Simulated assay, not measured.
Amino acid sequence: MYLTYIILRPHPYEEAVKRGERKRKRGGGRKGVLPTIDDKLLFILYYLKSYPTFDVTSSVFNMSRSKACENFHKLLPVLHETLSRIGVLPHRNFKNVKKMKEIFKNIEQIIIDATERPHHRPKNNEKQSSMYSGKKKNMP
Rank of each mutant, 00 (worst) to 15 (best):
Y2Q: 08
L3Q: 12
T4C: 12
L8A: 10
R9D: 09
P10G: 06
P10H: 03
P10C: 02
P10M: 04
H11Y: 07
H11G: 04
P12T: 06
P12N: 09
Y13P: 05
E15P: 00
E15W: 01
A16L: 13
E21W: 14
R22F: 00
R22A: 10
K25F: 11
G27W: 00
G28D: 11
G32L: 01
G32N: 01
V33H: 14
L34G: 01
P35I: 02
P35A: 06
P35C: 05
T36L: 10
I37E: 15
D39L: 04
K40A: 11
L41R: 14
L45K: 03
Y47T: 01
K49R: 11
S50C: 01
S50P: 00
T57Q: 00
T57V: 02
S58W: 04
S59L: 06
V60P: 02
V60F: 01
F61G: 06
N62C: 14
M63Y: 04
S64A: 04
R65Y: 04
R65T: 07
S66N: 11
K67A: 13
E70S: 15
N71S: 11
F72E: 03
V78H: 13
V78L: 10
L79M: 13
L79A: 11
T82E: 06
L83V: 03
L83F: 11
S84D: 13
S84N: 12
R85P: 01
I86S: 09
I86P: 07
I86V: 15
G87R: 04
G87E: 04
V88N: 13
L89I: 04
P90F: 04
P90M: 02
R92G: 03
N93C: 10
F94K: 05
K95V: 06
K98S: 09
K98I: 03
K99H: 11
M100F: 12
K101S: 14
K101D: 11
K101N: 09
E102Q: 08
E102G: 06
I103R: 07
I103Q: 06
I107P: 02
Q109A: 13
I110Y: 08
I110R: 03
I110K: 08
I110F: 04
I110T: 08
I111A: 14
I111N: 14
I111L: 15
I112G: 09
A114V: 11
A114Q: 06
E116S: 14
R117A: 08
R117F: 15
P118V: 02
P118T: 09
H119R: 09
H120C: 03
H120A: 12
R121V: 15
R121E: 09
K123V: 12
K123I: 08
K123R: 14
N125T: 14
E126M: 15
S129Q: 14
S130K: 15
Y132E: 13
S133G: 14
G134C: 10
K136F: 03
K136V: 05
N138Q: 10
M139R: 12
P140G: 07
